[in-house]
Simulated assay, not measured.
Amino acid sequence: MRVLAAMSGGVDSAVAAARAVDAGHDVVGVHLALSAKPGTLRTGARGCCTIEDSHDARRAADLLGIPFYVWDFAERFTEQVVETFVGEYAAGRTPNPCVTCNEKIKFEALLEKAMALGFDAVATGHYARLSVVDGVPVLRRSADLGKDQSYVLASLEPEQLRHAMFPLGGSHKSDVREEARERGLAVARKPDSHDICFIPDGDTRKFLEDRIESRPGDLVDAETGAVLGRHTGVHGFTVGQRKGLGIDAPAPDGKPRYVLSLEPVSGTVTVGSAEGLGVRTIEADRAVWPSEQPLDGPTECVVQVRAHGGVVPAVAEATADGRVTARLREPLRGVAPGQVLVLYREDADAGDLVLGSAKIAATA
C-alpha cells in the first residue's frame, strides 16, 4: 500500500513510520505545519508542531530513507481547532482540542489530501488498536493502557478509520523507546508532548482572556444562593475547578468549594462542595459510531469523559437523531458540557472495544 506517515517529530510517530516501512509499504513522511508563527508554539522538545519538531521529523525520515514533506495546515488549524477552542469556552463549555485536532486535521484535512494524492492510508503514532473486519473498522484500547489514545480517536467516522493505521497499538511505550534507540533514531529519548501546543506558556486563562470579551458575572453558592463574588467571564472556569475561584471568604464548613456549573447567558458561576460534583446521568449529542453499529436498546458499557480519566460502568441508550443518554452505575465527578463521552464494551480477551462517542450536552 501507499502509506502517508504523519510525523510529528516525536518518538512514537517515527517508530510508527519505521514499522510501516518494515511492513513493505511505500511510505512517505509528512510533517504538519500548524502555525503561521511556529516559534510561538511550545518548544523545548515538548510540543508536536514546532520548528524543532519538523527538523526532528525530517532527520527520522532521512534515516528511514523515505521522502519527506512539510504541509502547511496553519490556517485550517487556526479555524477548526484554536477558534473552536475559544468559542467553546466562551459558551461555557470545556472542549478537548486534541480530539478536535485528530478529527478535523489529522483524519479529515490530512486524510482528504492523502486520498486525493493516491495514498491508501495514513499511519500515525497513536496508541490504539485498529482492525478492519469485512470492511468494518474495529477500534480498541491499546495494549499499553497507560498510554491509550483510543479516547481521542473515538470521534472518527468509519470511513476515516478504514484508511488509518496505528502501528503502535500492540506495544508498550518503553518498548517503543527501546526500538527507537536500536534503530538509531535521535528522538528515542525525546520527552512526550504535554498540555496544549498552541498555548506556549500553559496559561489557558490568560490565553482566553486575550481573545474573549470580558462579561462579568456572579459567583453563587449552590446551597444558599448567596453571591460570593464577581468574575470577568465564565471562560475562566470549568466544572470541577477548585483553585483560582476568587472567593475571599471560606465556606462555613471550612471545606473547599468547586465549580459546579456555568451559565454563559447570565454569567453565573455556581460553586459548592465536592459532593455536588457527582453526576449520575449524562446527556450527549452528535453521536459517532466507529463500527457503524449504533446502540440497539439499553446497553451495558463503561464510559470515559476525559482522555486520561477513569471509567465507570453505565447503561447507555441512543436515539436516531444522534443523542445518547448514559446512566452511570456510580457517580462521576467533574463532568462538563463540551467534553466527549466515549462508550466502551469491556472485552477481556481483546481489550475494550470503542462502541461510540458523543459530545456532552448536559448532566444530572
Results as ranks from 00 to 15, higher is better:
residue 73 F to N: 09
residue 89 Y to L: 14
residue 351 G to F: 08
residue 9 G to M: 09
residue 350 A to H: 15
residue 76 R to M: 12
residue 64 L to C: 12
residue 201 D to F: 09
residue 90 A to L: 07
residue 326 A to Q: 02
residue 228 L to V: 13
residue 330 E to A: 14
residue 125 G to C: 02
residue 70 V to N: 06
residue 22 D to R: 15
residue 14 A to V: 13
residue 115 M to Y: 00
residue 134 D to I: 05
residue 162 R to A: 03
residue 36 A to H: 11
residue 9 G to V: 07
residue 259 V to I: 05
residue 158 P to I: 02
residue 312 V to Y: 03
residue 8 S to K: 07
residue 199 I to S: 00
residue 28 V to W: 00
residue 115 M to T: 10
residue 183 R to W: 11
residue 306 R to V: 09
residue 163 H to P: 01
residue 143 A to V: 10
residue 276 G to Q: 14
residue 271 V to M: 03
residue 341 L to H: 06
residue 265 V to A: 13
residue 358 A to N: 02
residue 2 R to L: 08
residue 39 G to K: 04
residue 70 V to T: 13
residue 188 A to N: 07
residue 172 H to V: 10
residue 129 R to H: 07
residue 269 V to M: 12
residue 354 V to N: 13
residue 251 A to Y: 01
residue 93 R to L: 12
residue 265 V to I: 10
residue 239 V to E: 03
residue 22 D to S: 15
residue 293 Q to V: 11
residue 218 D to V: 03
residue 208 L to T: 08
residue 337 P to A: 00
residue 269 V to W: 10
residue 25 H to M: 05
residue 299 T to E: 15
residue 118 G to N: 01
residue 70 V to L: 08
residue 279 V to R: 04
residue 4 L to F: 12
residue 185 L to P: 01
residue 15 V to F: 01
residue 337 P to K: 04
residue 285 D to V: 12
residue 135 G to H: 07
residue 230 R to Y: 00
residue 341 L to N: 11
residue 76 R to Q: 15
residue 340 V to L: 14
residue 138 V to Q: 13
residue 138 V to R: 13
residue 297 G to S: 08
residue 232 T to V: 06
residue 2 R to C: 04
residue 202 G to I: 01
residue 178 E to N: 08
residue 108 E to V: 11
residue 224 T to R: 11
residue 72 D to Y: 06
residue 292 E to H: 07
residue 212 I to A: 00
residue 326 A to G: 02
residue 343 L to P: 02
residue 289 W to D: 01
residue 187 V to S: 05
residue 119 F to I: 06
residue 38 P to R: 11
residue 307 A to V: 13
residue 253 D to G: 07
residue 315 V to W: 01
residue 81 V to P: 05
residue 240 G to P: 09
residue 97 P to K: 08
residue 252 P to F: 03
residue 178 E to Q: 15
residue 273 S to T: 15
residue 349 D to S: 15
residue 16 A to F: 15
residue 72 D to G: 04
residue 88 E to Y: 11
residue 209 E to S: 12
residue 350 A to Q: 14
residue 340 V to G: 01
residue 40 T to P: 00
residue 193 S to A: 12
residue 201 D to V: 04
residue 90 A to P: 03
residue 260 L to T: 07
residue 43 T to W: 10
residue 274 A to F: 06
residue 357 S to N: 01
residue 80 Q to S: 06
residue 290 P to T: 09
residue 109 A to I: 14
residue 215 R to K: 10
residue 279 V to I: 09
residue 199 I to K: 03
residue 200 P to R: 15
residue 96 N to A: 13
residue 363 T to P: 00
residue 95 P to Y: 04
residue 167 P to R: 08
residue 38 P to S: 05
residue 341 L to R: 05
residue 193 S to L: 07
residue 31 H to Q: 05
residue 301 C to I: 00
residue 293 Q to S: 14
residue 309 G to T: 01
residue 8 S to I: 09
residue 362 A to G: 12
residue 56 D to Q: 07
residue 234 V to N: 10
residue 224 T to S: 15
residue 81 V to R: 04
residue 246 G to E: 08
residue 355 L to M: 13
residue 51 I to D: 11
residue 145 L to Y: 02
residue 137 P to N: 06
residue 47 G to C: 11
residue 108 E to M: 03
residue 19 R to C: 13
residue 245 L to C: 05
residue 185 L to M: 10
residue 131 S to G: 08
residue 279 V to D: 07
residue 94 T to N: 15
residue 204 T to K: 15
residue 15 V to H: 00
residue 252 P to Y: 06
residue 54 S to D: 03
residue 137 P to A: 02
residue 176 V to E: 06
residue 306 R to H: 11
residue 192 D to N: 00
residue 17 A to V: 06
residue 351 G to Y: 09
